[in-house]
């Protein structure tokens, strides 16, 4: 379970994230929506322990991201907006390295790497240099690195950006299959995707929380696009 409490991040005087509070139950997939610059990436960076919050707190399975940072990171998988890939490494080598620094036990690394490769469809490219891979494959390697430590919480920042429709569908299936035991937080701009994958919706704008509800409550009653525009542009955009 993830509990976000009055989370704030200031860049100088500008509040990128402004008193954000919400809770995500275990095993749910949260769709994290908002226009560009709303503070999605900043929030995810704080949740993944990349940067400390200016104030407020996040607890993941009861552990605080600021005081128990190193512990928390063992339970988190994070795919940033730009997949953090070493272009001069081979896929196998890269996954092995990530597994190592994520604290996967040495004897479990080969098995773990083989299983994420199969899951992400990387078996054919495992000997290739990451620098030579297409964007779709790179994205998959990015997802593979985020799940290599079998994380309980998975944070994905725009995992389908720049992919073609078939790849998007594949990644969607992959994310669906990853949920269940895991809690997934997913930011995206593709609204149909959200209604297909997510259990909960959170809309933020200018760092503030505008709307949060479960997909079951929204389905049938509201149109997601209408909802998004209403809470981000006051309903009169477009």
């Amino acid at each position: 379970m993830i509990r976000v409490n009055n989370l704030c991040k200031y860049y100088g005087d500008v509040a990128a994230v402004d008193h954000l509070s919400f809770t995500i139950e275990k095993g749910r997939i949260l769709g994290f929506l908002g226009p560009n610059g709303a503070g999605k990436t900043t929030t995810m960076r704080m949740m993944s322990c990349f940067m400390p919050p200016s104030s407020g707190s996040v607890s993941i399975n009861g552990m605080d991201i600021a005081t128990q940072s190193i512990m928390v990171r063992k339970f988190i998988g994070y795919l940033p907006e730009n997949p953090p890939l070493y272009t001069d490494m081979r896929v196998d080598e890269y996954l092995e390295f990530v597994a190592g620094i994520k604290g996967v036990q040495q004897d479990r690394i080969p098995k773990q790497a083989a299983s994420v490769k199969a899951r992400c469809g990387l078996d054919d490219v495992s000997r290739k240099l990451i620098g030579t891979l297409s964007k779709g494959y790179r994205q998959r390697v990015g997802i593979a690195q985020s799940i290599i430590n079998d994380p309980e919480v998975l944070i994905l920042d725009e995992p389908t950006i720049g992919l073609d429709p078939k790849q998007i569908a594949e990644i969607r299936t992959l994310i669906k299959s990853l949920a269940g035991e895991r809690t997934v937080i997913l930011s995206t701009h593709i609204l149909p995707e959200v209604s297909l994958i997510c259990d909960d919706i959170l809309i933020i704008n200018k760092g503030k929380m505008m709307f949060m509800d479960s997909m079951d409550n929204i389905r049938g009653k509201h149109d997601l696009e209408q909802l998004f525009l209403k809470y981000t542009y006051g309903g009169n955009a477009g």
């Binding site: 990349f50 190193i70 063992k74 890939l85 272009t87």
Partner: peptide, 13 residues
Amino acid sequence: QKTIELLFTSPLY
């Protein structure tokens, strides 16, 4: 290359 995000979000000091 933004790989610093990987290092900083891994359990490494």
